[in-house]
Amino acid sequence: MSLNYQAVLWNRQKKIYDGLIVLGVVLYLGMFVGVGSLVRPQTTIETLLIRGFGTLALALLHVILSIGPLCRLDRRFLPLLYNRRHLGVTMFLCGLFHGVFAIVQFHALGNVNPLVSVLSSNTDLSSLSAFPFQPLGLAALGILFLMAATSHDFWLANLGAPIWKSLHMLVYVAYGLLVLHVVLGVLQAETNSVLTLILAVGFVWIVSLHLLAGFGEIAGDRELTAAGSDRFIRACAVDEIREKRARIVCLAGERVAIFRYDGKVSAVSNVCQHQNGPLGEGKIVDGCITCPWHGYQYAPESGASPPPFTEKVPTFNVRVKAGEVWIDPHPNPPGTRTEPAPIEGDASNG
């Protein structure tokens, strides 16, 4: 998981995923340029490539931004998430080709440096119709570059999860900039309202998905406060947890994943140390809690990744009484071994 770094740890799933990405990119560009040159013979190959790469990058960004909330709403989308960074790098490369071609086309071979030209040709902020849209695209491309360049786990480990996560949340800033780039740019010259409609549907789709997923998270975050005689809090009934799966509860502002396995119950922080994935939506595989996002694993008793890996998550002291799970809301330091609570009467409890 995090011991050594290689550019890409190829496996069959990754090869299939990347193969499909390449197939989709080739099909889209081939169709856009091929059909475009037939139905718009007056245009040039440069313009078709600029538009083909630009529209493809924006379409891929919609797919990328949809995968996260779709997985929150329905776990069946999780296979799309595992290699999402490959999709992200592909999207950045499409955006880069769009940007480079556009800068060469519209700004090169002039009387100033092309990048200076992007920022200085149009500085009219007095109206929406005049507003310079190309610097917005350049700013978005800069963000996407930072994200693509730091997409490898090497950077996640060295920057630390909070910084890395914050950096990658800038994708929403990039998305906003790109929507404005299109609205204030090409849509001002195009007269077909279908183009505006497509962008609007995409925007509403992204916002709605995130709101739906967000509301779902909030609903599941109701704080548990039913404390017993000591500081333990009743979390749930044992029967509410499926074998080798977990139930997520909210204690003292933190999500806790309570796993049931082999006649026992253990509780760990719900937050994976890799990319903050929801461990409670994972499964016990080969005796380890396995994150549903990228498969990072932790021993349920200790919250520690199996050697030689070094990730650790906080654990929680847990009890089972009369078929109910009780949890001490105070987390143990990451990697602290705690005794799993045996489930009375469970046949698998040896």
Binding site: L20, G24, Y28, M31, F32, T47, R76, L80, T191, N192
Partner: peptide, 24 residues
């Protein structure tokens, strides 16, 4: 899901191709 995604992508490209204005 992947088949639907590819189909939607191709359809989107076609619509965008035909929806753009003519050139001089």
């Amino acid at each position: 899901a992947v088949a639907i995604l590819l189909a939607v992508g191709i359809a989107l490209g076609l619509v965008l191709t035909f929806a753009q204005s003519s050139f001089d």
